[in-house]
Amino acid sequence: MLEYRQRMPRPTHDTSTILDAAGRILGAEGLAKVTMAAVIREAGVPSGSLYYRFPDRPALLAALWNRAIESYHRDAYPLFEGDPVEAAAALAAYTVRWCEAEPAHAHVLLAGRSRFDADAWPDAARQAEAAESVRWNQSIRGLTRRLRAETSVPITEILLVVVDLPYGAVRRYLGGDTPIPADLAEVVAGIVRTSLR
């Protein structure tokens, strides 16, 4: 007589698990260490699960970059509305808070797109990234124009305080694996307001 054994559920290895592992490696060891073999080890997934989703490293890096960008941009777009100086301050504070809440994603953005081998990405990933870049850059340019019209602050200075300052403020903490101070978002927002008034 045949015995019927209850089948154990197969473990699921979803895309998020894999990309989370890649993000942890990047944050701890740098982008060069994000290899297919390292991600398999870190995620604890069979190689087939990884290669089924990402046929090669460029495809993995593309997904890692695009996911981080989507995470950052999703809640940032509404902040561009209203008074331009307050919008700039809100965006700066949001950037700091987002980096604190999403350190793995923040490490991806701080590494910079140029290091992600974008020329080798799959076409769909490149097109998605390009479309999102256009949308984001239009939003930044629109805010910059509004700030320039209202404050007469030079564009170079606007970009420095609105775009570069928040990343510079968090880089020292994320790079040193040190907690971001609780008041850093408000400090950065205050500097933005002072610089643009």
Rank of each mutant, 00 (worst) to 15 (best):
P46H: 11
V170L: 02
R41K: 15
E81P: 00
H107S: 06
R53G: 05
V163W: 01
A125E: 03
R145Q: 13
R135D: 06
L160Y: 11
V134I: 12
M8L: 14
M8D: 13
T144N: 08
W121N: 05
V161S: 04
V187P: 04
F116V: 02
G190K: 05
Y72I: 11
E186V: 06
D75N: 10
H13A: 03
T35V: 00
T12Y: 09
D164I: 06
V161D: 02
A131H: 12
R197A: 15
L160F: 14
Q127P: 08
E86V: 09
A76T: 08
T156W: 00
E29K: 00
P166I: 07
S71V: 11
E186Q: 14
R115E: 11
V162G: 09
I191S: 13
N137Q: 14
R141V: 14
I40D: 00
Y52N: 15
G82K: 05
P122F: 01
A101V: 02
W98G: 00
E132L: 04
W65R: 03
L2E: 06
L60W: 01
A28L: 03
A90V: 12
A125I: 09
V187T: 13
V108T: 04
T35Q: 06
L2Q: 02
M1P: 05
A128S: 10
S16C: 08
R74H: 07
L165A: 03
I155E: 03
A43P: 02
G44C: 12
A106L: 05
E150H: 10
R148V: 07
T178F: 01
A68L: 09
S195M: 04
L110Y: 08
R57P: 06
L147C: 01
R193L: 10
L26I: 06
R197L: 14
D183R: 08
A38W: 15
G176T: 02
E100W: 08
A182R: 08
S71A: 12
R10M: 14
A68G: 07
I25S: 11
A149D: 14
G44Y: 10
I140W: 15
V188K: 00
A131P: 06
E150S: 10
E132R: 12
N66Q: 10
A63Q: 12
L60A: 06
A28M: 04
G142S: 03
A59D: 01
V85A: 10
A101P: 05
A111S: 08
A37L: 14
W136Y: 09
T95D: 01
P181R: 09
A62F: 13
L110D: 10
R145T: 11
P9A: 09
Y94H: 01
L109W: 03
A106I: 05
R57W: 12
A130T: 10
A124D: 12
D119R: 05
Y52C: 15
R74T: 01
R148N: 12
H13K: 15
A182N: 05
V34G: 00
A87I: 11
A92G: 11
L110M: 09
P181E: 01
P103C: 02
H105K: 02
L110A: 12
I191P: 07
A21T: 03
G175A: 11
V108C: 05
Y167G: 00
L2V: 11
I18D: 03
G23R: 00
H105R: 07
R67K: 09
I140N: 12
L50Y: 13
V170I: 07
R67M: 07
R141M: 10
N66Y: 07
P58I: 00
V161F: 00
D123W: 07
P78S: 06
L19V: 13
A87T: 07
A130R: 02
